[in-house]
Design a protein around this nucleic acid. Sequence first.
DNA 1: AGCCAGTCTCGGA
DNA 2: TCCGAGACTGGCT
Length: 168
Amino acid sequence: MKPLSVSLPIPTPDGEFTAHYSEQGLAGLDFPRTKQAGRRAAATNPIPLNVRAWHGTTVAALKKVLQGDKPATLPPLDWSGKTEFQKQVWRVMLKIPRGKTLSYGEVASATGRPKASRAVGGACGANPVPVLVPCHRVLAANQKLGGFGGGLEWKRRLLGREGLDHFA
DNA sequence: AGCCAGTCTCGGA
DNA sequence: TCCGAGACTGGCT
């Protein structure tokens, strides 16, 4: 049985993101494709009303973050199927305010596993909702960028827009 | 068992 | 001061 899954485009000045929804909420967010690919999810089917509402929230939130601002509200996030540790890590990241950064090690400590810094990196990579769950605000201990699934370009750009001059 | 978006230490440019 | 190699790490597939 395949659960409900709806994909909707989000046009932004930085390209077209794609949001994926389950019946639980926002389940995934994709960066713009470098290549113009056109997936169109069942455009003939009516989009459920709750998904429509979530999407409105997602679009507004995403645009805010892309401007380096704090989103007013986030849609419900569907983290089903993820491990407890991963959810803990993302919960910590959601609390990092705009323009601030933590190291992987600090995030690890916040989850009660000070030595799991490397695993935190793994959890960041597994984050299905980048940008809104600000994995880009986690740096290596020496204030260097570390990695980023969507490409380090994005990480630097997002931090730059949040006022971290160093990365502009 | 093997992979990693880390971190620390130590040695050499 | 700034890398690079090596050792060690803990969670995930």
